[in-house]
Structure formats: C-alpha cells, structure tokens
Simulated scan of single mutants.
Amino acid sequence: MAELSERSGVPAPTIRYYLREGLLAPGHFTSPNQAAYDDSHVRRLRLVRALLEVGGLSVEAAKGVISAMAAKSGNEFGVLGQVQYGLSVGRGPAGADLPPDAVERVNDLIARQGWQVRDHNPARAALASALVTLQEIGRDELLAALDSYAAAADTLARRETDELLALDGEEARAEAVIAATVLGDAVLSALRRLAQESAVAERLTPDRSAD
C-alpha cells in the first residue's frame, strides 16, 4: 500500500477508501496483511482522481463509469456509450424539463450535421439547456454561431475517434473516452480562454503586447 501510494501520488487512506467503494480492484494478497499492486492499479488510481477531481463526478457516478468500463457485453459501442453517458450523471437537466422548441432546435442541429446520436444521450438535454439560457440573456450572436461550434466539435470528435480506434482492447478505449471527455474538455476550455484573450488583445491593443 505504501509503495502504491508513493508511485501514484495518492495518500494511502484515500486508496483504502477507493478500495472500499469499489473504485479500485483489490491487490493480489501475498499474506493476510500484504497485497501486491501493479501498474494497472496506478493507472486506475490516476483515472479515478481525474473523474472525481477534474470531472467533478460524485463517487456513485464514478463507480458507474468504472463499472461500465469493466463490462464485457460484446457490444463495444454500447459500452463506450455507457462510459461517456456516465460522465454526465446528475450534472444536467432532464429532457422532460426543457421547452419543446429548445429540444427541437437540438434535434434540427443533429440532423443538419448528419450525426448518429441516440435519443437518450444526456448531451442533448445539456445543449438544449444552454441554448435556453443563451436565449434568455439575449446572446443571439452565440445562438447564430451554433453550426460553427458544431463543425469545430465534429472535427475534434473525428480525430479523437481515429485515435481511440487505434487502441487495442475495450478497457483501453474506455479510458481514452474518459480522457477525451473529462481532460479534453478541460484542455479545450483553457485553450479557448487563451485564444479569447489573444483575439481581444489583437483588436484592442494592436500596437503592444498584452500586459
């Protein structure tokens, strides 16, 4: 346990908590009080921390994602979908709570893009909710840019999918889905903010570097 803590950077009490909650598989017991852990445990610990600390998931939601990763149903598309959908558990509105016109707007966008998206994908409701808020605060320019946002997202998704399918094994691919969704979102958000500052500086301070 001490060695696993040192290798992963996760405190031993936290590792024991993850073990109790089923977020981490037990080690191989070499004696009644000793267990051996390998690189797969280190990798899983880092993944769990990404889910909880970067992704902001609850322990229960993280357990659902880990459980979906472990599924061997023979339906890889379904398993990867469960993993991705699990990353949104409890983090958005239910579709039934949204205005029908907002839901229809999302449906129309998906149709225009030619995307194959299941009806129960939680991102549908998340997007509809964001569009409702944009309309309420009068940000029509962002609503008008929706197709541009979709085109950029499509380009990223296709590249991520190429990289995902180059990996061997369902579990490795499930981990890649988590990385692209949780950490990729964080990277994209940070890059967008950096680019925004640069674009504004170019327009408002064209003759000097930003302070």
Rank of each mutant, 00 (worst) to 15 (best):
G22R: 04
H41R: 06
E21W: 00
T205G: 03
G9N: 05
D101Y: 02
V10D: 02
V200C: 08
V10C: 02
S58Q: 10
P100K: 08
G9R: 05
A144C: 01
L167C: 11
A102K: 06
L4N: 02
V83T: 02
A195M: 14
E3N: 03
L57R: 05
A36G: 07
S189F: 11
L19R: 05
E202A: 12
A125V: 01
V79I: 07
R105P: 01
Q116A: 12
P206I: 02
Y37E: 04
T133R: 14
R192L: 06
R44M: 08
A172P: 12
G95Q: 14
R16T: 03
V200P: 04
A94Y: 00
V200I: 13
L164V: 04
G92F: 07
G184S: 14
G138E: 12
Q196F: 02
R192Y: 09
Y85M: 04
Y149I: 00
R158P: 07
A152H: 11
L146K: 09
V89S: 04
V187Y: 15
R124F: 03
T133M: 10
A144D: 15
D211R: 12
L45S: 04
I66N: 06
A62T: 04
K72L: 10
G92R: 05
Q196I: 02
P11Y: 02
L47I: 00
D38G: 15
P26D: 05
E53Q: 13
K63H: 15
I178P: 09
A125K: 04
L167W: 07
L45Y: 10
A172S: 15
A151T: 10
A71R: 15
I110L: 15
K63E: 07
G95A: 15
A50R: 13
A186W: 10
S73D: 10
R139G: 01
K72M: 08
